[in-house]
Amino acid sequence: MSTVSAAAAEPAAVTESGEQKKPLRACCACPETKKVRDGCIIEKGEENCTELIEAHKDCMRQLGFKI
Rank of each mutant, 00 (worst) to 15 (best):
M1F: 05
S2H: 05
S2W: 01
S2F: 01
T3C: 02
S5N: 12
S5H: 09
A7T: 14
A8L: 10
A9K: 08
A9M: 06
A9T: 07
E10G: 05
E10R: 15
E10I: 06
P11L: 09
A13R: 15
A13H: 11
V14K: 13
E16Q: 11
S17F: 08
S17H: 08
G18W: 07
G18N: 07
Q20H: 09
Q20N: 08
Q20P: 03
K21Y: 04
K22D: 15
P23K: 08
L24K: 12
L24S: 06
R25E: 10
A26N: 07
A26C: 05
C27H: 08
C27R: 14
C27T: 13
A29I: 04
A29E: 08
A29P: 03
A29L: 04
P31A: 07
E32R: 10
T33F: 00
K34T: 12
K34C: 01
K35M: 05
K35F: 02
K35V: 05
V36E: 07
R37M: 12
D38C: 01
C40F: 00
I41G: 01
I42A: 14
I42R: 14
E43W: 00
K44Y: 09
K44W: 04
G45K: 06
N48I: 03
E51I: 06
E51R: 06
E51C: 00
E51A: 11
L52N: 04
L52W: 03
I53Q: 07
I53N: 01
C59E: 03
M60V: 09
M60Y: 01
M60R: 06
Q62A: 10
G64D: 09
G64P: 07
F65G: 03
K66V: 11
